[in-house]
């Protein structure tokens, strides 16, 4: 009883599995997403507003290198964060490991397809093409 209270717990090094790495990235990406996503939303939806957004505005913005880098970061971090979040929600309701693995793979495919669609559009729009 008395021997257990004072000494520091021993640190054990264990190789990280996928979910521990994913968890760490959820948190890092979240910190980055707060300025990225908040500023994007406040700028486009509140300051500019949907009634002033046109196709020309979108093309001009996506052709700008600074905004392109901003949008690449947002696309990469936000959707990955979101889809891993959806996976964690499924984990609460799907208790069969095989089913959960299948759902995870489907979510991964969905994430990859949507991200690829966004990335192709974003990278293809450049000032020279206009």
């Amino acid at each position: 009883m008395s021997a257990t209270t004072t000494s520091q717990p021993e640190r054990v090094r264990v190789r990280k599995n996928f979910d521990q790495v994913a968890w760490t990235w959820m948190r890092y990406s979240a910190v980055l997403l707060i300025p990225l996503a908040w500023f994007h939303l406040v700028l486009q939806d509140v300051v500019v507003g949907v009634h002033k957004i046109t196709t020309d505005y979108a093309i001009e913005r996506m052709a700008n290198m600074g905004w392109k880098i901003y949008d690449i970061l947002l696309l990469g971090f936000a959707f990955a964060h979101g889809m891993n979040g959806v996976r964690q929600v499924f984990r609460d309701y799907i208790h069969n490991p095989k089913t959960f693995r299948a759902v995870s793979i489907l979510l991964l495919i969905f994430w990859a397809v949507i991200t690829a669609v966004g990335a192709v559009a974003l990278l293809s729009i450049n000032p020279a093409a206009q």
């Binding site: 196709t55 949507i114 192709v120 559009a121």
Partner: peptide, 23 residues
């Protein structure tokens, strides 16, 4: 709120890609 944002985000990425694929 997380599920709401990710649902919108999936739609938003695809609809914004229309700027390039189908102006």
């Amino acid at each position: 709120t997380g599920l709401g944002v990710v649902l919108f985000l999936a739609i938003h990425i695809v609809d914004t890609s229309f700027v390039y694929f189908a102006p």
